[in-house]
Structure formats: structure tokens, C-alpha cells
Design a protein around this nucleic acid. Structure first.
Lengths: 191, 191
DNA sequence: TGAATTTTTTGACATTTGTCAAATGACTTT
DNA sequence: AAAGTCATTTGACAAATGTCAAAAAATTCA
């Protein structure tokens, strides 16, 4: 097993039914990649057939709404990320995913994953758990963004993912919170 | 196969790898239930270990926020429904699911489902597809509720699920749209 | 370093949505 | 039908957030 992939190993011990051999099977189909700050992991308009795991760094998922870009999510080291809806439906995605800083990423092709699922039904369950986790997170985010004020949402973000505040721009954070730049600026100024 | 379960059959032909025998396996673990208008399929504070499929009728999922209740979703005939996050995590759920009209529902216990998944790995893939569909829907809903005005959201609901406008109360619809009763009333009045 | 560019903050004001109280309408029960 | 209850609408005003223009601060680049 690749002992240098700290994050992946750390995350996988959470899942049921995984020993070192299983993890090796998974790593066999992974491609280790570097993305420089600003590079795109996923590009809108293309079919997204890859699942990514962030080993190091920070990525942002966003889409374009008229002239602005709107942040969907930030993903830290130790998280899976893809255009989930695009990955599921295999239609051209509206999402972009960019590296907010230099990143080390594991890339899993959908084809290879499906082959693995056929070969090792055990892994379908792992993928299921990833999906489930993804779902619960999205639901939390929905409730978070629907029923809290802009101020509450900002302070909750500071607590939960302080790295983001440091790395992302005001505009990126504002669109994630669903408010405009000026409003966020005022919240930060404490007004 | 139970030919009277129109909706279930209609939905299942969408999924890959399902023949009549497979569907029968699934129905073997299902319990067919009637819920009268107002009855609860899922109750907050309890662990939700059931997945439901709405054969007939309309159900609403909601939770309590202070004194008000907040609608999370409406589910029509032909849709699966449960407290997905509660079902996944097996922690006491904050969700209630109620019948908005008399309903016919198929109930699938989590235990029985897991047994089926072990016995027939094929079914893990079906469950995966249900989860995936759920996820895509939730993501659409998030974008819908985050980046449209109250008015846009209301008219979109009218188009997509007109049955809901007829059956649900103003208060239930308003909280689903994330606005208060008076605002919805004004949108309806065209102001 | 200093000019140019970009990002963030501030101010004045507009718009959207919320709050509270009261009025109206619909439905139930007797 | 009258009284009581509940749901919905309306009005007056308040609070939150958005828009646009300009200023200030930070960053980039020559």
C-alpha cells in the first residue's frame, strides 16, 4: 500500500469491509496527478467521467450564471470531489472544478470504477458509502443555506472550514453563501 | 409480478439489469401499506430504517424549526421517499413524513434490503441508482432554491408539480419555497 | 519603486422579503 | 343559520440584502 497517501488511507479506514488488499485494488486504478493553482480538474460542457480524491490542497466547484461565477462547493484534502450530477448522468456538465492552490489529486475513471465494481462487488458498497456521505453533506448544505441568515452562514463557514476563508476570494465565498460581494464585505466589517 | 403496482413497475423499467424475477425479489421484501391523510410515515426523533415507494397519493417531508414546520420536499406517486440522511446514518431523524392525502405505499426495511444486497449484489446497483437519482434531484433543488427569486421558484413549482399546488396548504408551500406565508400570498395575488 | 490593475470596502439608495396586526374568507359544529 | 375555528389575504412598516458608483487597499508587473 502507498503509505504516502495519508489522506486516502485516513479516510478509508472509516469504511466498512476494507483491508489493505482492497485499498490496493482501488489504488491500482487510480492516477496520481498534480494540479497547479488555477488549473481545472473538470470543465463545463464536457462529460465528466472522473471521480477525484483530494490528497493535498483545496479545490472549488462553480458554474457560470450570466457573467458571474457561482461557487457550489469547496473541497479540502481528504474529500472526494467531482461534478456528481454530471458523473452520474454522463451528460455534459455545467460545473467547473478548479484548484485554488497547488493540489495533489487521485483520479478514478468511471470505466475503471465500473470494472472494479463488477470484479469486486465489495467496492460497490464502498462507492455507495461515498455517495451516501455526499448526499448527507449536500442535504446539510441545503438546510444551512436555506434557513440561516447570511451572517450565520458566514460564521458557520469560518468555524467549519477556516482554510477556505484564507484561500478563497471574497467573491468566491460570497457566491458560495448566496450573497453578493458588498454584503459579505459588510458582514466582515461587522455591520 | 404484481401487475397492480403500476407505478413501481413503470419506474423499475428505467433501471438497468432488472427483469421480472428481479422485481419479484424486491417485492418479496416489500410491505404494502395504506396511510390515511394526515398519518405519519416517518416521525422525528425516531430512527428511520425504512425506505418507502409512493404507489398512490402525495406525501410531504418536513421538520420543525422553532414553532413553525418547514417543508423539505413533496413526493408524488412513482417516487421513493424516506428521511434519506436518517436512513443512511441510522441516527434519530429530525424529519417527519406525512400523507397529504390517502396513500398506498410500499415499505422496505433497511435490514431486509441489506440482506437482499448480500444475496443479490445486482440489487446494490439498483439501490445505488436510486441514491444517485436522489442526489441529482437534491442538487437541482439546491440550485433552484439558492439562485432564483421567490416568484420564479413559485412558478417553477406550478409547472413541475401542479398537483402540489392543489393539495398542499399555502403554509406548506411557502416553507418549501423558503418564504413566509404572506409573501407567497402576495405572489399569488400578482404583486 | 511606482504605475497599472484587481480586489475589497464604503456610501447612498432601491428592492425584496419579513413581521405584526387586523380583516376577510372558508370550513366545522351545533 | 350562528358561533367558533382555521386559513388566507391585506396593510403598514421594518429589516435584510441588492445595485451602482466611487474610494481605498492590495497585488501585479514593468
Amino acid at each position: 500500500m502507498r503509505k504516502d497517501l495519508n489522506m486516502l488511507v485516513k479516510i478509508f479506514v472509516k469504511f466498512d469491509g476494507l483491508d489493505e488488499d482492497s485499498i490496493d485494488q482501488f489504488l491500482d486504478i487510480a492516477i496520481l496527478k498534480d494540479f497547479k493553482k488555477g488549473e481545472l480538474l473538470v470543465r463545463e460542457g464536457e462529460v465528466c467521467d472522473k471521480l477525484f480524491f483530494v490528497e493535498q490542497g483545496l479545490v472549488r466547484s462553480f458554474y457560470h450564471k450570466e457573467v458571474k461565477d457561482v461557487t457550489i462547493s469547496f473541497s479540502l484534502a481528504g474529500e472526494f470531489i467531482t461534478s456528481m450530477s454530471g458523473f452520474i448522468t454522463q451528460k455534459p456538465t455545467y460545473e467547473n472544478i478548479e484548484a485554488l492552490e497547488d493540489c495533489v489529486v487521485l483520479e478514478f475513471g468511471k470505466e475503471k470504477l465500473n470494472e472494479l465494481f463488477v470484479r469486486e462487488p465489495n467496492w460497490v458498497n464502498i462507492y455507495r458509502q461515498i455517495l451516501e456521505e455526499y448526499y448527507v453533506k449536500l442535504e446539510e448544505h441545503l438546510i444551512f443555506s436555506k434557513f440561516k441568515t447570511a451572517k450565520e452562514r458566514y460564521y458557520e463557514l469560518i468555524n467549519k472550514k477556516p482554510q477556505i476563508i484564507k484561500t478563497a476570494s471574497i467573491g468566491q465565498i460570497a457566491s458560495y453563501l448566496g450573497i453578493n460581494i458588498e454584503t459579505l464585505s459588510r458582514i466582515r466589517a461587522g455591520r
